[in-house]
Amino acid sequence: MNRAPLIFLGAFLALSFSWAGLVLSNQVGYGTLAPHFDDTENKAYPGQLPGLSARGALVYQDLGCVYCHTQQVRGGEPSADLARKWGERESYARDYLRDTHVQLGENRIGPDLRNFGARAPSAGSPAAAAALYQHLDNPSSVVPGSTMPAYTFLFTTRKISGDPSPEALAVPGVPAGSELVPTERAVTLVTYLLGLKDTYDYPVERRLNTPPAPKAEGKK
């Protein structure tokens, strides 16, 4: 009976130990990591998310995309992430400074999205957004056999008044005189996804994470 306080104290110390060791030490170690200022380009990396993208990140969060899509590129054996062109390099902690809410993900039911904006079909052109709208509206029409849900509720059918919307989806089954257009949530989500790219290479991380070149002489 009088050992209960001892158990409490011990339990407190045991969990404090892991909290201090894992959480506190890392918060001190790199919790205040700053963006890297590149004096050649006069810009800091990673840059802030533009407003529309930041709202898209919230849509990404509320739809629970993270349960099927990771946002982390892994290097080294046996990962094939780089060979799959999911990124030009492995992800670094500094890449995630722009995310208010880091969503590394735990299961790759779908492909990694960390560099989706860099590798999206016809990246950078308006066609990229159109392709992504179609993918969200009906995934299996773009990727046969895809098990991704159809996010039809992100799109709305409306009467065409005036000029047709440039964002209207070119899909069959829309009544004449109407068009299928993305809702605001779809627009922000697509802006966010197409903005996902970690193409800048940080010199410090590169130096620390590149294995030393094997010495030429003295092969064993």
């Binding site: 050649t40 380009e41 080294g76 290479d201 590169r206 130096r207 620390l208």
Partner: peptide
């Protein structure tokens, strides 16, 4: 905290920062 591969025991500040040639040229171009 910036080393992600456990077997790399480089000390911070060791070795020069060497960029790949294409990045050096890209920076020079800008």
């Amino acid at each position: 905290p910036l080393v992600y591969n456990g077997h790399l025991n480089t000390k911070p500040g060791e070795g020069p920062v060497v960029l790949p040639p294409e990045q050096i040229i890209a920076k020079g171009k800008s």
